[in-house]
């Protein structure tokens, strides 16, 4: 029996190792690409063993370091605040919906699911957020539109609360006279760390990677102090692409695109965007620990 378990475990290690390699090797190519000499990369493609190395791509990004530094602060604030607030309201709704006896539950669920399918489009969203709620050029522009809560997360939480929290626990709490809120905070939430970590991670990733809100709701004049890292990186990316496509026009004005590390800078931008979230990931992982002590609570 033990042997069989060990065999299974070794097999698991091998498979996961292979999967990790599949994921890491391209990432390595990306990192090496960002350190490759631009002209060499254009002529020879990206390689694990480039013949010419260069730091130019990072120097180019570094030119805007003062803005990027502040943008990191903005991003961190938005990510932390947005994730926390989102997680709070999402899990409260998920908890309410996890109770099969709640009158009107079906209707609320349909109300929630519809939002996964239908949307009014950007024109209408923009109108509502700017003309009704006036969030343009405020920090809320990065937090509220689209990202705070979504149907998928609500349903994930609802499912977990419904299926993985023993009913008996809730009932005994109510018998002891605990209120809904008290039960929710002191029994349900502590038992739901894996799903909270999951939803929190998804939400944090969404906040971290988002650049559309900044694009739409922050303007150069008046809102640029709230640009997030992805706003800046993304705008850099787009403008480099634009420059590259229109270099002839610019060159006519005496501006040469020749020394712009166009190809490699895209790689560097991706690296700069990915590394911090990768560094923050272990924070979430500790909640995926096996065998959350439901048994212990029961006992």
């Amino acid at each position: 029996m033990k042997n069989q378990d060990r065999g299974f475990r070794i097999g698991a290690h091998i498979v996961l190792m292979l999967l990790s390699l599949l994921a890491i090797l391209p990432f390595l190519l990306l990192i090496i690409g960002s350190f490759t000499d631009n002209a060499w990369a254009i002529a020879n493609g990206y390689s694990f063993f480039p013949k010419e190395w260069s730091l130019k791509a990072y120097q180019y990004i570094g030119q805007q370091w003062s803005t990027i530094g502040r943008a990191y602060l903005v991003t961190i604030f938005v990510t932390v605040f947005g994730t926390a607030l989102g997680l709070l309201i999402t899990s409260m709704l998920g908890y309410a919906l996890s109770r099969p006896e709640l009158p009107g539950r079906g209707i609320i669920l349909v109300f929630v699911v519809i939002t996964m399918l239908f949307n009014g489009g950007i024109v209408a969203s923009y109108f509502i957020w700017t003309q009704v709620f006036h969030i343009k050029n405020t920090i809320w522009a990065l937090i509220f539109p689209n990202l705070l809560a979504n149907a998928f997360n609500i349903i994930l939480l609802k499912n977990y609360f419904e299926n993985d929290i023993p009913r008996a626990l809730l009932e005994s709490a109510f018998l002891d006279g605990a209120s809904e809120l008290k039960t929710f905070t002191s029994i349900v939430l502590p038992l739901s760390l894996p799903i909270l970590a999951t939803v929190g991670l998804m939400s944090a990733l969404a906040y971290w990677n988002d650049w559309t809100n900044g694009l739409y709701y922050l303007s150069e004049r008046g809102g640029s102090q709230y640009y997030s890292v992805q706003n800046i990186l993304n705008s850099m990316n787009n403008n480099i692409q634009f420059l590259a496509n229109n270099a002839t026009e610019l060159a006519k004005a005496g501006m040469s695109g020749a020394d712009l590390p166009s190809t490699t800078v895209r790689m560097a931008i991706a690296v700069v965007g990915i590394i911090p979230i990768l560094a923050a990931y272990p924070f979430f992982q500790k909640y995926f620990v096996k065998g959350i002590t439901i048994g212990a609570v029961k006992g």
């Binding site: 631009n38 002209a39 990369a41 254009i42 002529a43 692409q241 590259a244 496509n245 270099a247 002839t248 695109g257 020749a258 166009s262 190809t263």
Partner: peptide
């Protein structure tokens, strides 16, 4: 890549 990159990178000789 863009045509410009090919020109500046010496891949292409005509613009």
């Amino acid at each position: 890549q863009t045509g410009t990159e090919w020109l500046t990178g010496g891949v292409a000789l005509g613009n």
